[in-house]
């Protein structure tokens, strides 16, 4: 009986014709997005600036309510989940975390435990284990007593990830996690996420600015343009030259990574290439 039930109820996220605006101005950031995300997937979301990537992530987190269409998680509409229950299952990491007060790294990571605590109690043993584990996984234990405001961009991003991991979510939503990071730090951060995804079956939906990192990190790439999904599939398919020409303009060139063997995107020409030819 239970087996029949779980077969009928779709697991993971289902989006049907979602229309949503980022703010109250009414400008549509998403204009009818339908998407299914299965548990344990690693999905990269890419697209030009202002395509609606961040809004899609906030819709998945339940932070932006769609004005039309439905979002369900495990067959239940997202708005019917309690805020606290959602926070126990879904962690959302904004582009940049800027705490308003001076706060220590440990204090910030402890905020990830909010949905697991009672209103009256303090940190219990499980909270402390989760905080220590998150600090260790992101290699930030040495910073635990430093102030978040004193850390470099890369360190701060790792600490922010630690907060999300302390939340012990099933789904991790990352909004351009590597934008302010140099390649080595970006790689390090994605390694942590990839390890959690591989070892613990964490579902990851990450918005990327860098198409190549997206293709390297995720098994599935969703391309969004003008609030619509224009391509969805493995990197080689989603980042095909025809798709890129349509979304980013005819300035991209798709190749295969010489070592890893996944699709990678190169600029089709050097800046001011004509000028350079003339000089030479």
């Amino acid at each position: 009986m239970a087996g029949a039930n779980s077969a009928r109820v779709p697991r993971g996220f289902r989006l049907e014709g979602v229309v949503a605006s980022y703010d109250t101005s009414g400008a549509k950031a998403l204009c009818g997005v339908s998407l299914a995300i299965e548990p344990g997937e690693f999905v990269a979301v890419v697209g030009p600036n202002g395509a609606g990537k961040s809004t899609l992530l906030q819709v998945l987190a339940g932070l932006v309510k769609p004005s039309r269409g439905t979002v369900t998680l495990d067959g239940v509409a997202l708005r019917d989940h309690r805020r606290r229950d959602l926070a126990r299952r879904i962690a959302w990491l904004p582009q940049r975390l800027d705490p308003a007060f001076d706060i220590t790294v440990e204090g910030l990571v402890a905020l990830g435990r909010t949905p697991h605590r009672s209103l009256w109690g303090g940190d219990d043993h499980a909270d402390r284990l989760a905080i220590d584990g998150a600090l260790a996984a992101t290699d930030t234990t040495e910073f635990r007593d430093r102030l978040v405001q004193e850390l470099s961009g890369g360190e701060r991003q790792r600490v922010a990830l630690a907060m999300s991991l302390a939340q012990m979510p099933e789904v991790l939503l990352l909004d351009e996690p590597t934008t302010h990071l140099d390649p080595a730090h970006a790689q390090g951060l994605l390694d942590v996420v990839a390890r959690k995804h591989r070892d613990e079956g964490l579902t990851v939906v990450a918005v990327f600015h860098d198409l190549n990192l997206a293709a390297l990190a995720a098994g599935r790439v969703v391309v969004i343009d003008g609030g619509l999904v224009v391509a969805d599939g493995p990197p080689a398919l989603a980042l095909a030259p025809s798709v890129l020409a349509q979304t980013f303009g005819p300035v991209m060139h798709t190749v295969t990574h010489p070592v890893v063997g996944v699709a990678q995107v190169l600029p089709a020409r050097a800046p001011l290439a004509c000028l350079r030819l003339e000089i030479s």
Partner: peptide, 22 residues
């Protein structure tokens, strides 16, 4: 009781909502 929900507000309102604060 409110203090428990005020702490995450240092993350901003969206950040606080994402860790379960109404």
């Amino acid at each position: 009781a409110l203090a428990h929900w005020l702490d995450p507000l240092v993350l901003g309102e969206a950040g606080a909502a994402s860790v379960g604060v109404p």
